[in-house]
Amino acid sequence: MTSGFDGRSVIVTGAGSGIGRAAAVAFAAQGARVVVADLNAEGAAETVGTITGAGGTAVAVTGDLSDQAVVDGLVATAVERFGGVDVLVNNAGIMDRMSAAGDTSDAEWERVIRVNLTAPFLLTRAVLPHMLAAGRGAIVNTASEAGLRGSAAGAAYTSSKHGLIGLTKSLAVMYRTQGIRTNAIAPGGTVTGIVLDLEEGAHGPATLGGYFGNAGRASEPEEQAAAIVFLASDAASNINGAILPVDNGWAAV
């Protein structure tokens, strides 16, 4: 077996910055042909430029992945340009406002769940026929430390990431006899440039602040990307349904 990705088709969502960009670049460095998906067209173009500038192959697709039409177009691009989908990385996500349930608006709840949980479901459902036809495939989801505990984010984000972990395990069981593996990473704090929109003095942020002392150092996006690439690789061929904390031991505290 090899851990290389020569000629394989890889979709990475949220690849215009942060963990997604680092993962897209890492896959391309191992020979993958990468579909760079992001809501931000400028960021996606920058990632593609980085990959092609290093001699790799990549194409950008932009749009809101909570829109079924965007999802269908993304998968069609991967199939038409690169012949199929060998790896799907559901990385795109948004933070909530660290709101407690009693302070969470309908709009905050619905948007966070739509982007963080429904979009990965839609995209996974769309790529499954292609992976099933090929008899193989690897899916890696970016969950969160908030998917392992209740003290790392607000009600909406925490629920979305717990849900994504549940989806990961369901996929692992349902498709393990058909050559498809599904795993997830659970990042702790990571240097991604995300700015939190917090309501000063609100119950949620005030309560959660006391728990962040256990988080340890923030990781670099490349550290998260290395775990993603490993889980998608042949080196992880018997790893399925795993949730891998990449958090400097925060989950162990």
Rank of each mutant, 00 (worst) to 15 (best):
T2R: 15
T118G: 04
A236T: 11
N116R: 08
E110A: 05
A215H: 13
I243H: 08
D67E: 10
L231F: 07
A15R: 11
S159I: 01
F230Y: 14
S3H: 12
A146S: 15
V36E: 09
E223T: 01
G188C: 04
R217D: 08
A54E: 15
F212P: 02
L198Y: 09
A252V: 10
R217V: 06
D38G: 03
E199N: 12
I11P: 13
L167E: 02
G4V: 03
T158S: 10
V70P: 02
A218E: 13
A226N: 13
G56V: 10
D234A: 13
A26T: 08
A215Y: 13
P205L: 01
A156H: 06
P205S: 01
L122G: 04
T47I: 02
S144V: 11
D64G: 05
Y175L: 08
R33H: 14
R149S: 07
D103H: 08
A58M: 13
R111C: 00
A143W: 12
L88H: 07
F27M: 08
G150N: 06
T142N: 13
V229K: 14
W109L: 05
M98T: 05
D103Q: 14
Q68A: 12
A107E: 15
A23V: 03
F82L: 05
A152V: 01
F121P: 02
E110I: 00
Y211N: 07
A24R: 11
V89W: 07
A15T: 07
V140F: 10
S66F: 04
R217Q: 10
G14S: 08
E200F: 03
A236W: 09
V75Y: 08
V10G: 03
N91D: 10
G20E: 09
Y211P: 00
A29I: 03
R114Y: 00
L123A: 12
T50V: 14
A23P: 07
N116F: 00
G209E: 10
I19F: 08
I165F: 03
P187K: 09
G16Y: 07
R111F: 00
F212H: 10
I11G: 10
